[in-house]
Design a binder for these strands. Structure first.
Length: 809
DNA sequence: GCATGGTCCTTACC
DNA sequence: ACCGGTAAGGACCATGC
C-alpha cells in the first residue's frame, strides 16, 4: 500500500518495549490515516574529560531502572556550543522512565537532549515535518491484532505500519492544504468551569450551521432541541464524528469551552468520543490549561492571535468582538446576558443567533489566520497544536533546534529551576538610546530606520552564547556592556548568528516575492520570519532560553547605541537638523536639502555600514510636532505626530493612542494634531478646542465619550495600590459580577465632594450621575492639549478660563 | 494645610 | 513564566515644612 498524506498531529507510544510515533493525517484524496512509524529514543552524554569516553561508555551500558534499559551506545564526533566533542549517543528502550535513568548516571558527564520530547525527536530524526506532503508505503493493519489491535480503536480510514516515508516534493511545491474546520462555542449560566449547565452549543463549518439546545421554543431550523444536557453533549460528539473535521477551533476554548465540556461530561458520566481514538478532551497545564483531542487538532484562536497578531492590532482588547471587528469588519451581535430561566421565547431565539454568530466569527477569523498558523508550523517544524500555543521564545528556539543538524550540534538543555530563578533576578542591562527632542513644529522631515536592527547587529558581530569568550583572545571582539564589564566574542561565525542571518535574508526574500506577487501565503511567510528575527534578540536575554546569553543582548544594545549616534553625527555634519531618534530610527529636518540629496546621504551611510546592517528610508513628511513632557521644559520622548506628503498621519505615544484615556480627550487631541499638521498653525485647532471645552461645561457631552477603560493586569488580591479601577473591580466583585485578571474595567468620574479622591467619585457607566466637569477639564482635556498649544506659546489654562461659565473657576 | 517626591500602575515606543 | 529595555504620566500616600 502506498499513500500520499500530510501530517496534522503526532503522538508517542510504547509497545512491547519498543518506541513508536503515530501520525494522524489526511491523504491527498481526503481520507483520514494513521501512520505508525518507529522511533529511537536517545540522549547524549558528553564526558567532562575527553579521555574518559571509552570507560564511561562501558559504565553507561549497564544502567537500567525497572524495565527501562540502556540498549545501545555509540561514540560520535559532535559539536557542542561550537566546540568539538567526543560524545556518547545513549539509546534507551523507552521514554517513560528516562528521568530515573538520568539520575543514576555518573557525575563526570554532561547530559543533553534528554529533554527533547519524543514527537520533536521523531521530527528531527526522520524529517517528517508537519503540514508537508509525504508518500508512505507499508502494510495496512486490518484487524491484524498487531499493536494489540490499535487499528480497531482508531476511527480512521486506514492504519498503516510504515516501511518507508519520503517527501512528495512536487506536491509540496504546488498543492496548498485546506483543512476541514469546525468552529464551536458554548453558552452557560455560570462562568466557573463546570458549575452550571451548558445551555447551548453552536457549531459552524463550510456546510454546517447548528445550535444545540435544551430549550423547547419555536426556533429557526438550524436549532436542534435535545431532551437534556447529557443528550446535548452526546449530540455534539456525534456531529463532530459525522462531520469529521481536521481542526476544531474556539475562542478562549483552552480556558473555557473545552474544560467546561470535559467537566460536565465527567459529572454526567457521559463518554465524549471527540478524538479519532474515541477519547474525550485531555487537559494539561494546570492554571493555564491547554486542551487536546487526539487525532484532530484543537486550536484556541485567542492564543495564536496573542502571540502572532496582537502587536499589529489596534483593538482595545483581544476579545472576539474587537478582533473580528478589526480583521473582518464584522461585529458581534448585541446581546444582554440574563439567566436562562428568565429568558422569554423571543430572547431565546436572539440568544441562538448570538451563539451561532460567535462560531461564525471564530470560523472566519480562523480562515484569516490559517496562512500564518500554517507558515509558522512549516517554518518551526513543530506540530500545529503546539505552534498555535507557543510564545515567540519557543518559536525562536524551535527554529534553532530544527536547524542545528546542519552544524552537527548537540542541543543545549533547558535551564533548571534554580537557574531560572537566578536568571530572573539578574540586573537589567542598558537598552536602547533615545534622543531628547526639542519641542517644536518642524517642516520637511525625513525618517530613516535600520532594518531588523538588533538581529542584524547580532548576526554581523557574532553575538551569542556559543561565540562568547571567557577572556580576551587574539582577534576577539571586545564590547563594553556597562557597569565596568566587558564581553568578548569570537570572530569565527557561530550557529546562532548564522541562523539569524538566514532568517533575515529569508524575510527579505519573501518580502520582495510578496511585493511582486501579493498572496496571503507569501505575506504570512515573510511576516513569520520578521517576527522570528525580532524576537531573537529578546530570546537571548530571556530566562527560559536554552541559548540564554544576556551579555550578547547587552553587547547588541551597546553596539546599537554607538551606530545610532554615529549616524546622528554624520547627519549633523552633512548639515541636516537632527530632530529625534529612538532605538533604530532617526528623524531629520531636511534643512533646505532636496529628497535626492537626502537619499544620497542615505546611500553614503549604507556604504560604510558593516555586515548586513542597513539603514532604510521610512518616509518623507511634510510636518511633524514634538512636545514637552507634562512637567518641565524638556522634550518628551516617544511622543510625536507626523503628516506625510499624501496627508496620512502617524501619531505615536500621544494620549490619542492610549486606551486608558477617555474618548473625548483622545478625539479632541487627534483633531488638534490633525488641524495643526495640515494647516501649519494652531488657529483652527484653538477654535475647535474652545468648542469642546464649552460643550463640557454645558454638560452636553455624551457619557459614552467620558468612559475610562483600564485593564486589571493581575488578580484583585495582588494589588498594593488602591487605584480607581481597582476600586471599581472591588465593587463589581461585591455585586457578584465576574472579575478576573485581564479584563477591562470601565468607569467615569462623577460629581462629588471636591476634596474626595478620584476613586471615590469613580462610577459605573450605567449609574445615573452627573459627570464631574472639573475633572474632565483639568485631568483629561487640559493634559491632552496643553503641551501641544505650548509649542505655540499658548497657555490652555487661559483658554479654559476664557470660555463661558467663568464662575466654575 | 499643602507642595513634593516616591511608589505603584498602565500603556505606550521600538 | 513563556522575547528585551526605555519612557510618559496618573493616582495615591508618606513626608516635611
Amino acid at each position: 500500500m502506498e499513500i500520499t498524506f500530510i501530517p496534522l498531529d503526532y503522538d508517542y507510544f510504547e509497545h512491547n518495549g519498543k518506541n513508536y510515533i503515530k501520525i494522524f493525517g489526511k491523504t491527498k484524496d481526503g481520507k483520514q490515516v494513521c501512520i505508525i512509524d518507529s522511533i529511537d529514543i536517545y540522549f547524549w552524554a558528553i564526558p567532562k574529560k575527553e579521555n574518559d569516553v571509552k570507560s564511561i561508555e562501558k559504565k553507561l551500558s549497564k544502567i537500567s531502572v525497572n524495565s527501562v534499559k540502556i540498549i545501545k551506545t555509540l561514540i560520535e564526533d559532535k559539536k557542542f556550543l561550537g566546540e568539538d566533542v567526543k560524545a556518547i549517543k545513549v539509546y534507551a528502550n523507552a521514554q517513560s522512565e528516562l528521568s530515573k535513568i538520568i539520575e543514576k548516571l555518573p557525575k563526570d558527564i554532561e547530559i543533553r537532549e534528554h529533554d527533547i520530547n519524543p514527537v520533536t525527536r521523531y521530527i528531527l530524526q526522520k524529517k517528517i515535518n508537519p503540514l508537508n506532503w509525504y508518500k508512505a508505503s507499508g502494510e495496512i493493519l486490518n484487524e491484524s491484532g498487531e499493536f494489540s489491535g490499535i487499528d480497531k480503536s482508531f476511527d480512521v480510514d486506514y492504519v498503516i505500519k510504515a516501511e518507508k516515508i519520503w517527501e512528495d516534493k512536487l506536491l509540496n511545491s504546488k498543492h496548498i492544504f485546506a483543512p476541514k474546520v469546525i468552529a464551536f462555542d458554548i453558552e452557560t449560566d455560570e462562568f466557573e468551569i463546570g458549575k452550571g449547565e451548558i445551555i447551548m452549543v453552536s457549531l459552524y463549518g463550510k456546510d454546517l450551521k447548528k445550535v444545540l439546545t435544551l430549550k423547547n421554543v419555536n426556533a429557526p431550523n438550524y436549532v436542534v432541541k435535545l431532551k437534556d444536557e447529557r443528550e446535548l453533549l452526546l449530540e455534539f460528539a456525534k456531529i463532530i464524528k459525522k462531520e469529521n473535521p481536521d481542526i476544531i477551533t474556539g475562542y478562549f476554548s483552552d480556558g473555557f469551552d473545552l474544560p467546561y465540556i470535559k467537566s460536565r461530561a465527567e459529572k454526567l458520566k457521559v463518554k465524549m468520543p471527540l478524538g479519532l481514538d474515541g477519547g474525550g478532551v485531555k487537559l494539561t497545564g494546570g492554571n493555564n490549561p491547554r486542551a487536546k483531542v487526539s487525532g484532530r487538532v484543537h486550536i484556541d484562536l485567542l492564543k495564536f492571535i496573542q502571540t502572532a497578531y496582537s502587536q499589529y492590532l489596534q483593538s482595545e482588547t483581544l476579545s472576539l468582538g474587537d478582533v473580528a471587528n478589526e480583521l473582518l469588519g464584522e461585529k458581534k451581535k448585541e446581546h444582554e446576558f440574563k439567566h436562562s430561566s428568565k429568558l422569554s421565547g423571543d430572547e431565546w431565539v436572539k440568544f441562538f443567533e448570538y451563539n451561532l454568530h460567535d462560531s461564525y466569527l471564530t470560523y472566519e477569523l480562523f480562515l484569516k489566520a490559517w496562512p500564518d498558523m500554517s507558515e509558522f508550523t512549516k517554518i518551526t517544524k513543530e506540530p500545529l497544536w503546539n505552534v498555535t500555543r507557543d510564545g515567540m521564545s519557543s518559536n525562536v528556539e524551535n527554529y534553532i533546534i530544527h536547524n542545528l543538524y546542519k552544524y552537527n550540534e548537540i542541543i543545549e538543555r533547558k535551564p533548571t529551576h534554580d537557574e531560572i530563578s537566578k536568571r530572573r533576578s539578574r540586573e537589567k542591562y542598558e537598552g536602547a538610546f533615545v534622543l531628547e527632542p526639542k519641542p517644536k513644529l518642524y517642516e520637511d522631515i525625513v525618517m530613516f530606520d535600520f532594518t531588523s536592527y538588533w538581529p542584524s547587529i547580532i548576526a554581523t558581530f557574532n553575538l551569542s552564547k556559543s561565540t562568547m569568550l571567557e577572556k580576551k583572545e587574539k582577534n576577539s571582539l571586545e564590547i563594553d556592556i556597562g557597569k565596568g564589564k566587558k564581553a568578548y566574542f569570537n570572530k569565527k561565525k557561530g550557529f546562532f548568528p548564522e541562523i539569524l542571518e538566514e532568517i533575515i535574508k529569508l524575510r527579505k526574500q519573501y518580502k520582495e516575492e510578496y511585493k511582486k506577487n501579493p498572496d496571503n501565503l507569501l505575506k504570512a511567510r515573510s511576516n513569520a520570519f520578521k517576527l522570528l528575527a525580532n524576537a531573537s534578540y529578546g530570546y537571548q536575554g530571556f530566562f527560559g532560553a536554552r541559548y540564554y546569553c544576556p551579555e550578547a543582548s547587552a553587547a547588541a544594545t551597546s553596539i546599537s547605541r554607538d551606530y545610532l549616534k554615529k549616524v546622528i553625527k554624520e547627519a549633523e555634519s552633512s548639515d541636516f537638523k537632527v530632530i529625534y531618534s529612538d532605538t533604530d530610527s532617526i528623524a531629520l529636518e531636511l534643512n533646505g536639502k532636496t529628497q535626492k540629496q537626502t537619499l544620497e546621504f542615505l546611500k553614503k551611510i549604507n556604504d560604510k555600514l558593516p555586515g548586513i546592517m542597513e539603514l532604510e528610508l521610512e518616509d518623507f513628511y511634510k510636518r511633524g510636532i514634538w512636545v514637552t513632557t507634562r512637567k518641565g521644559e524638556i522634550g518628551a520622548k516617544k511622543k510625536y505626530a507626523l503628516i506625510n506628503e499624501k496627508g496620512n498621519l502617524k501619531i505615536r505615544g500621544f494620549e490619542t493612542v492610549r486606551r486608558d484615556w477617555c474618548k473625548l480627550a483622545r478625539e479632541l487631541q487627534n483633531k488638534v494634531l490633525e488641524k495643526i499638521l495640515n494647516e501649519g498653525n494652531e488657529k483652527s485647532a484653538l477654535v475647535y478646542t474652545k468648542e469642546v471645552i464649552n460643550k463640557i461645561k454645558d454638560r452636553k457631552v455624551d457619557k459614552k465619550s467620558l468612559i475610562i477603560k483600564t485593564q486589571l493586569k493581575k488578580s484583585l488580591s495582588e494589588y498594593k495600590a488602591v487605584t480607581p479601577h481597582v476600586t471599581m473591580a472591588r465593587k463589581m466583585l461585591k455585586k457578584g459580577l465576574p472579575v478576573h485578571a485581564g479584563m477591562l474595567i470601565q468607569y467615569f468620574i462623577a460629581e462629588g465632594d471636591k476634596k474626595s479622591l478620584t476613586r471615590e467619585r469613580a462610577s459605573f457607566p450605567e449609574e445615573e450621575k452627573k459627570y464631574d466637569v472639573d475633572y474632565y477639564l483639568s485631568k483629561q482635556v487640559l493634559p491632552a492639549v496643553e503641551n501641544i498649544f505650548q509649542v505655540f506659546g499658548l497657555d490652555v489654562n487661559d483658554i479654559i478660563e476664557g470660555t463661558k461659565q467663568k464662575t466654575l473657576f
